[in-house]
């Protein structure tokens, strides 16, 4: 029987992925002004609300409408043609640029109706900003899985129960999966956004170090044959890795003042640490996706543990059967 929460998990991840991908990106006057200031004539998506349903036809055949953008700034905007159903429309999502002299938004194309719900336009990212809903949960899960693995490692050292060691190993296995996914998705994105697959920015360095730790952890596990010894030594190694690496690579540079971005004296401490950096809607979707990933992680862990318990029981039965024969 399928438990209800598995359906909920599927719907949850599905709905929030769809929301993340399909929500339109729309800027406002201020975004347009940034490009106009430097003479960049590119078109960006802008949401304009109609303030007054009164069209003025101009000499070149375009239509002038009084309106305001999604943030409430007033501006006239120019439509290339008169859209059908104009009198009922609330507004439009336009592909537009800014005419600074006349303070007008000049639309090249009407992309759709006024979106009731949209993400802000981030210069230089555009639609690529939506990667945050998929890539960031992956990298968070990498760290969470590492913590879970270490937690069960400590539990093993205290209770000496091999089930805890199995949990530690499977958490690390999932962490490795998430780590690889975060690295690959990040570098694919970096290729299109920054032009190179890899450029050693601090976050790239940190995910690379995590990849190294996971690699070392599994190399160590594969080098020891005795179960108890393997459990003990790998637990010790993961604690040692935890006290040195995350602390000294992620936390210390943030506490200490320094020249690097994200240091204590820098305003840009990253989207999560600094408050008010991210749009509320995007934040809700990001955290919902993260929650979905955590539940998915727990589910995959529990499947692995069920298989492990059955394997263990089978082995115990085999030994008992062999003893009964002899």
């Amino acid at each position: 029987m399928i438990k209800w929460w598995k359906i909920v998990l599927f719907v949850w991840i599905g709905v929030f992925s769809a929301l993340g991908i399909m929500t339109p990106i729309a800027g406002g006057l201020s975004d347009l002004a940034i490009f106009a200031e430097v003479g960049d004539t590119r078109l960006i998506p802008v949401a304009m609300k109609i303030a007054d349903h009164d069209l003025t036809e101009q000499e070149d055949g375009t239509f002038l409408v009084a309106g305001e953008d999604k943030y409430g700034d007033d501006a006239m905007f120019v439509l290339p043609e008169k859209p059908a159903g104009f009198s009922e429309a609330e507004g439009y999502l336009l592909d537009a640029r800014y005419d600074k002299e006349n303070h007008r938004v000049v639309a090249a194309e009407i992309l759709g109706d006024y979106p009731g719900w949209s993400f802000p336009y981030i210069p230089g990212l555009g639609e690529r900003a939506k990667i945050i809903f998929f890539h960031v949960p992956m990298s968070w899960m990498t760290v969470i899985a590492f913590l879970v693995s270490m937690w069960f490692g400590i539990k093993y050292l205290r209770k000496k129960n091999l089930i805890d060691d199995a949990k530690s190993a499977y958490a690390a296995g999932l962490g490795l999966l998430f780590c690889i996914l975060a690295t690959v998705t990040g570098s694919v994105w970096a290729q299109f956004n920054w032009g190179t697959f890899w450029n050693w920015d601090p976050r790239e360095t940190s995910i690379f170090v995590l990849l190294l730790i996971y690699g070392a952890y599994f190399t160590l596990r594969s080098a020891i044959e005795v179960d108890e010894k393997r459990a003990r030594l790998s637990a010790v190694y993961s604690i040692l890795a935890f006290v040195t690496v995350p602390f000294f690579i992620f936390i210390m540079p943030r506490i200490l003042p320094g020249l690097h971005p994200g240091s204590a004296d820098d305003v840009n401490a990253g989207p999560v640490v600094s408050s008010g950096g991210m749009d509320a809607g995007m934040r809700v979707i990001l955290y919902s996706m993260l929650l979905g990933c955590i539940v998915l992680f727990g589910w995959l862990m529990s499947i692995q543990m069920r298989v492990f318990r059955i394997t263990q029981k089978q082995e115990a039965d085999d030994i008992a059967a062999a003893e009964a024969i002899s």
Partner: peptide, 21 residues
Amino acid sequence: AKARTKGTLFPVLSFPILLPL
């Protein structure tokens, strides 16, 4: 010292730990 492949394992395990240093 408790593992099988002693020589090669050492730098593999040490490097991530020593990286911050």
